[in-house]
């Protein structure tokens, strides 16, 4: 038996193409900004107030400004056009790229698989995440572990910066790590590890409680993904503007 003959790719009458288009534009814009800042290799540290942009933290190679390397410089100076963030960006990028939310976002927006619900995708074949390379999405777990460590580093940087007094930059860094923490904690892998993998919640009351808390955050995972992503860029921009002396930090104490 055959399907009903309907030639149209979709009969949807709403603007179904708008959300994928917006997502695509947003991700593209942020990628361009992040790539530019990564390879700029400058204006990531405000010596006077100890602000370090999250994009360059931790700064582990010898070309880093020494004071910005809170964890020493175990790596030699990087060759050629490479800059300090290239050491950590694979982990940060890997975390976001394998994130269940971002997967949905770019599968729809960049790969049109599907572009929107009940709109036919343009691909002749589809194997989903069953084989290489997309089967590697299953590694999200590791990136979650790595990103959690980097989050601790960002929190440490933020706390250190309070040593010089209090300025608008401190508050921006604080909001930034809060959003990053909320995004990381709301991760589906985190939800699973916290308690989701258990069969008997009643036997593990503490983990059940943790699971319910993470589940609450997890409901907002998409919003947190965007908020934290945009805010990292804004934080970086603020640090860059202060570091390049384009603007001066608004100080409340000192």
């Amino acid at each position: 038996m055959a399907r009903a003959q309907i030639a149209a790719r979709t009969l949807r009458t709403d603007r179904w193409w708008l959300p994928p288009l917006t997502t695509f534009a947003g991700l593209l814009l942020i990628s361009i900004y992040a790539a530019f800042r990564t390879f700029q290799g400058d204006f990531y540290w405000v010596d006077q107030y100890h602000y370090l942009t999250p994009m360059y933290s931790p700064c582990l190679s010898e070309e880093c400004v020494p004071a910005a390397s809170h964890f020493g410089q175990p790596l030699p100076a990087l060759p050629g056009f490479l800059t300090p963030p290239v050491v950590i960006i694979p982990f940060l990028l890997g975390f976001r790229i394998t994130c269940y939310y971002y997967r949905k976002a770019y599968y729809r927006a960049a790969w049109a698989s599907p572009p929107a619900c009940a709109v036919a995708e343009p691909h002749a074949k589809y194997t989903g995440e069953t084989r290489f390379p997309l089967i590697a999405q299953n590694l999200h777990r590791y990136f979650f572990y790595a990103a959690s460590i980097l989050l601790c580093v960002n929190i440490y940087d933020t706390v250190l910066a309070f040593g010089t007094g209090l300025g608008l930059g401190n508050l921006i860094l604080l909001v930034n790590v809060s959003l990053l923490a909320a995004y990381t904690l709301s991760c589906h892998s985190c939800r699973h590890i916290a308690g989701g993998r258990l069969k008997h919640f009643s036997k593990h009351p503490v983990r059940y409680w943790m699971w319910t808390q993470v589940s609450k955050l997890n409901n907002r995972h998409m919003q947190l993904a965007w908020a934290s992503l945009i805010f990292v860029c804004l934080t970086d921009l603020y640090v860059a503007l202060v570091a390049s002396e384009t603007i001066s930090d608004l100080r409340f104490i000192n």
Partner: peptide, 15 residues
């Protein structure tokens, strides 16, 4: 059951 085919694009949840 082919869980790997699902690419979590959430149209099932939407409808």
């Amino acid at each position: 059951h082919g869980l790997g085919y699902c690419n979590i694009t959430k149209c099932c949840s939407e409808v």
